[in-house]
């Protein structure tokens, strides 16, 4: 199937190896990635939305029109982009007055939002259009015995009436995806806690990330699996900050799901950028017999 790739900002600029993992792992699943010209930031659901709500909606609508022109639905690889574009799409479809207001702005540059495309995080697209079974079939090196602590993050699932991905109180989608690559999904006590990135505070986000990481550490896993670069940055940089501030060394390797999928499809750690990670999943490498 063909779908328009919405790369967002954080992954292509700061974590391009995650983009590489997505591009490499989708090919064997039969997803034809279409790169479209002109996408901007989704824009940022936290700070941009907090600054100019109508501007936020208008920029999101502009991005949607680019996919509409190409006649392709959008897949995202970041939960923030998923949230912004899905919420904007929903609001503009539901509220005719708002749509008119946004379209008056888009008309200044010859664009019109029509509401003809859907937006999905790539994990939802895989589950709903490709099928979890396709993942299983693409695996050549199952991650047998690898324990992965799941972190769903907030914006893939909520608001659930708009996202329509899974029950936010009992989600299954990441369980299924992790099981499909032969690994063991490990739910832990704080798996629903927010990474804290949006809080404007020095200590508050670190309190949240530390609570999640301690809970994961207690569960005894090889890595944590997640699907959002913002969560990744919270848990990656966050561990550095926690260690600097308190001396507590948590050493929980956060990994973007498509890097795990790449390993399971037989790619080397360096092919999916795991050699670039600050906290390397050494016990995972050992279990599947690879080295960086």
């Amino acid at each position: 199937m063909k779908a328009a790739f919405f790369p967002g900002c954080l992954i292509p600029t700061k974590y391009p190896h995650m983009e590489l993992a997505v591009r490499r792992t989708l090919e064997p699943l039969g997803v034809e990635i279409v790169d479209l010209d002109g996408f901007s930031c989704c824009p940022d659901p936290i700070f941009f939305q907090a600054s100019d709500k109508i501007g936020w909606l208008t920029l999101a609508a502009r991005n949607l029109t680019i996919a509409e022109e190409a006649g392709l639905s959008i897949f995202t690889i970041c939960s923030g982009c998923t949230g912004t574009l899905s919420e904007a799409n929903h609001m503009l479809k539901e509220d005719a007055e708002l749509r008119e207001r946004v379209n008056r702005r888009l008309a200044r540059v010859g664009r019109e939002y029509r509401g003809t495309v859907s937006v999905r995080h790539i994990v939802a697209l895989i589950r709903d259009e490709i099928g979890i079974e396709c993942i299983r079939e693409s695996v050549t090196r199952p991650l047998t015995g690898v324990r992965v602590a799941l972190h769903y993050g907030c914006h893939l699932l909520k608001p659930s009436n708009i996202m329509n991905v899974d029950d936010p109180d009992d989600p299954q989608i990441l369980h299924q995806l992790v099981e499909a690559i032969g690994a063991e999904p490990v739910p832990h006590g704080e798996r629903f806690l927010c990474c804290g990135k949006a809080c404007v505070d020095v200590d508050l986000p670190l309190e949240m990330t530390r609570t999640v990481l301690r809970s994961i550490k207690e569960a005894g896993v090889d890595c944590m699996g997640l699907i959002c670069p913002t969560c990744f940055s919270s848990f990656d940089t966050g561990q550095l900050l926690i260690a600097r501030k308190t001396g507590e060394k948590l050493e929980v390797p956060p990994i973007y799901y498509f890097q795990l999928l790449g390993l399971a499809q037989g790619l080397a750690p360096a092919d999916v950028g795991l050699n670039r990670h600050r906290i390397k999943p050494l016990s995972l490498f050992e279990k599947i017999g690879v080295t960086t």
Binding site: P12, T13, P16, H17, L20, G38, D52, G55, R62, R105
Partner: peptide
């Protein structure tokens, strides 16, 4: 150096963004 780094990884360059368009639609109502 980002686009060079991306190229080295086999990734396409970052797409251009039409900033004139962005400025125009962000003008208040």
């Amino acid at each position: 150096t980002l686009n060079r780094k991306r190229e080295g990884m086999g990734l396409p360059p970052l797409p251009e963004i039409d900033m004139e368009e962005i400025r125009e639609i962000l003008r208040p109502d």
